[in-house]
Design a protein around this nucleic acid. Structure first.
Lengths: 184, 184
DNA sequence: GTCTATAAACAGATAGAC
DNA sequence: GTCTATCTGTTTATAGAC
C-alpha cells in the first residue's frame, strides 16, 4: 500500500468533513501532498471512487472504536456512555463534524454508491445502539436508538459551527440520563 | 419588490438545502427562472450577499411559524409539541433538511456574514426553547433546549437521507416524553 | 431590468512521455 | 508512480449595449 494513497484518503476525509462532497477537489488534495492532480487520479479514477473509499474507511474506523455492543463487558449504561465518548473524541481530535452526518444532508448531489455507504453507516449505528440497549427499554428500542444517534449528530454539527465541544457533552448527558432513568 | 428577486431567493433556498453553500450557482438559478446569470447579479452582487439573504429569510419565516414562546396560550407541553411540528412541516413541505443545519456543517467554507447568520439561528432556537420550558426544568434548561434542538436537526438530516419523515416523529416523541416526564 | 460578451479561475478527467 | 499538457465544462464576477 502506497504512502500517498493513504495520504490522499486522509486529506480527502478532512476536506469532506469541512466542506462536504463539493468541498474537496483532486487539485487541492494533490497540492497538499506536493504532487499533481493526475497522480491522484492514478489511485482513484473518479471522485466517486475516492469519496466511497473515504466513507468506508470512516465507517470501519468508527465501528472499530465502538467495539462489540453485545460484549459481556459492561452493562447498558457503560456501553452508551462509551458510544457518546466516541462521538466526542471524533469531534475533539479534528474540530470537525461527522463525515456521514455531513454527507447525509447532501443526498441530492451524492453519487449512488456514496449515498448507499452513508445509509449503511446510519443503519449500523442504529443496530449497534439497539444491541447495547437493555431489554428493559422494550418496544421503544428503535426510537431510543434514533434519539441518541440524531442527538449526537446534531450536537456534532452545532459543536463544529460554534467551535464548542460542550454541545456534545450536554446533549449526551441529558439524553442518557432520561433513557437510563427510564430503564431504572 | 421585483418578482424575480423573490424567485431567486426561493430557488437559492431550495438549492442550498439540497447541496449546501457550494451546491448552488448563479447560472443554475438563472436557468430555472429563464434569465441570464448576469441578471441574478443585478439583484445580488455576490454569492455571499445572496446566501445571507436566504439565511435571514429562512430564519424570519421559521420564527414566524414558531410564534411567541412566552405566550400565555398553552403550557410547556403544547409549546414543545408545536416546536417539533414546525420542524416536521419544514421537512414534509420540501423533503429537505434544515437550511441552517445544512450550513452548520460547512462552517469552514462559509463567508463570515453567513456564518454569523447561522449562529444567530441556533442561538435563537435555544432561547426560544428555554422560554418555552417551564421553570420546573430548573438548572438543566439549557441542556434540555440543546437536546431538543440537536435531536430535531439530526432527525431532519436522517429524514432527508432516507426520505423517511418518521425519524422526526420518533425523535420528537421520544425526546419530549422524557423531558415532560421529568417535569411531572 | 435584461442582455451579450468576456475574463480569470477552477472543476473532473484523459493521453501519453518518462 | 509521477509528470506535462490538454480537453471540456463550470464557477463567480464585470463591462457595457439596449
Amino acid at each position: 500500500m502506497s504512502d500517498n494513497r493513504t495520504k490522499i484518503i486522509e486529506i480527502a476525509e478532512t476536506m469532506v468533513r469541512s466542506g462536504g462532497y463539493n468541498g474537496f477537489s483532486f487539485r487541492e488534495i494533490a497540492a497538499q501532498i506536493g504532487i499533481k492532480s493526475s497522480s491522484v487520479h492514478y489511485y482513484f479514477p473518479t471522485k466517486e471512487a475516492l469519496a466511497l473509499e473515504v466513507a468506508e474507511r470512516y465507517t470501519t474506523d468508527f465501528f472499530a472504536a465502538l467495539g462489540d455492543p453485545n460484549s459481556a463487558n459492561g452493562a447498558t449504561p457503560e456501553k452508551l456512555r462509551h458510544y457518546c465518548s466516541v462521538f466526542q473524541s471524533a469531534f475533539e481530535s479534528s474540530g470537525r463534524a461527522c463525515l456521514c452526518g455531513m454527507l447525509s444532508n447532501e443526498v441530492a448531489l451524492l453519487p449512488e454508491s456514496v449515498r448507499l455507504a452513508v445509509i449503511e453507516f446510519v443503519n449500523a449505528n442504529i443496530s449497534w445502539l439497539k444491541n447495547a440497549l437493555s431489554p428493559a427499554t422494550g418496544d421503544n428500542k428503535t426510537s431510543a436508538a434514533k434519539t441518541i444517534y440524531c442527538g449526537l449528530e446534531g450536537a456534532m454539527s452545532a459543536a463544529a459551527l460554534t467551535k464548542d465541544a460542550s454541545w456534545i457533552e450536554d446533549v449526551a448527558s441529558s439524553t442518557l440520563a432520561s433513557i437510563l432513568g427510564e430503564e431504572g
